[in-house]
Amino acid sequence: MMYTAAALAILITMGLALARALLGPTVYDRILSVNMFGTKTVLLIAVFAFLSGQTDILDIALVYALINFIGVVAVLKLIEQGNFFTSGEKDEREVESE
């Protein structure tokens, strides 16, 4: 019973995070809410693992926690430099030299 309560609370939080993702004025708000949504998904999988009794799917939650972090950092790099292939230093020097 308590698992359903925890799962419900997590679902509400995910809904709020999604709402902020849609409303968010700046792109950083959207990344923030996607990041929060990701960590809540990890918790939802963990709670569901105990809800259904199969604790093997905790590995999925583990992998999702890592992928979520990497995804957030990748999107930040994409936004900051506009592309994935250039490394950061060159752009800084160009900016300073102008």
């Binding site: 308590m2 925890a6 419900l8 709020l16 902020r20 918790l43």
Partner: peptide
């Protein structure tokens, strides 16, 4: 029970805080 409900409430508070 206490931990789960506290964690859920804290999550909701974070969600409200975002708005």
């Amino acid at each position: 029970w206490i931990f789960l409900v506290a964690g859920g409430l804290l999550g909701i508070i974070g969600g409200i805080g975002i708005h």
